[in-house]
Amino acid sequence: MSTFQNTAHFEQVFKDNWELMYQSAYSKIGDQAVVEDILQEIFIDIWQRRESLEIKSGIKAYLLTAVKYQVMKHFDGQAKIRKDNSHNLPEAYYEEDVFGFEELFHEIEIAVEMLPPRAQLVFRMSRLEGYSVDEIADKLKVSPQTVHNQLSKSLKIMRGELKHLAPALAVYLLA
């Protein structure tokens, strides 16, 4: 069964998530027109695949991961334009689609599942849902330092598990 049962559901997902997605992309790119194009591309892609698309881990996490992936593709495109730095990066960095988005999301999900339960929760809240350290600490009733420690351990594990991805993509997703 598809994640999007009807047009109204799709529109509600857009309304509920576009602002967070916009803020996430804008904080990295800083160009309103580019960010709007990225969000449009994401939602067009989702709409075109709505019949077969099944999102199992949560729509918010899926959409924020899509934003991160599209932002990375934007920077990759910018890097291609600036050929002067091309000799410093590995060839795999410039491939059009090192991983399709679905494959990338799946790889991240597998790596997250390898984390201990509490570390999974902290990682998802921070990197996939966009919560700040203080927000996570407040929600989980722990100190911000505990959240920092959990994230540090999680990121070390995740980097090791995802090192086979294009280096710049792995660094961006896990920074």
Rank of each mutant, 00 (worst) to 15 (best):
L174C: 01
D31L: 12
M125P: 00
Y94C: 06
Y93Q: 03
T3H: 09
V142I: 15
R159W: 01
E107V: 04
L151T: 04
M1Y: 02
D84N: 15
A79D: 07
K139T: 13
V112S: 05
H106I: 08
N88R: 11
E91C: 08
S27I: 01
Y172R: 06
D84Q: 15
E96H: 09
K56G: 10
K80M: 13
S52Y: 05
S126H: 11
L63S: 01
Y131D: 01
L121Q: 15
E109W: 00
I55S: 07
G160D: 09
G160P: 03
V147F: 02
Y26H: 13
M158W: 03
V112A: 04
P116D: 09
G130N: 11
E36T: 12
E129D: 08
E51C: 04
R159M: 02
P144D: 08
E91T: 15
D138F: 10
S86H: 15
P116W: 05
A61R: 04
F43L: 05
K156L: 02
E19T: 14
N85V: 14
V171Q: 09
R118V: 15
M72W: 07
P167S: 06
D45A: 08
K141W: 01
F75Q: 02
Q120F: 02
W18D: 01
V142W: 08
T65K: 02
E135H: 05
V71Q: 00
R118C: 04
I108W: 03
Q145A: 13
K83I: 14
P144F: 04
D134W: 02
S27L: 04
D31C: 09
S57D: 06
V133S: 03
F123H: 00
V34P: 03
K141R: 09
Q48A: 11
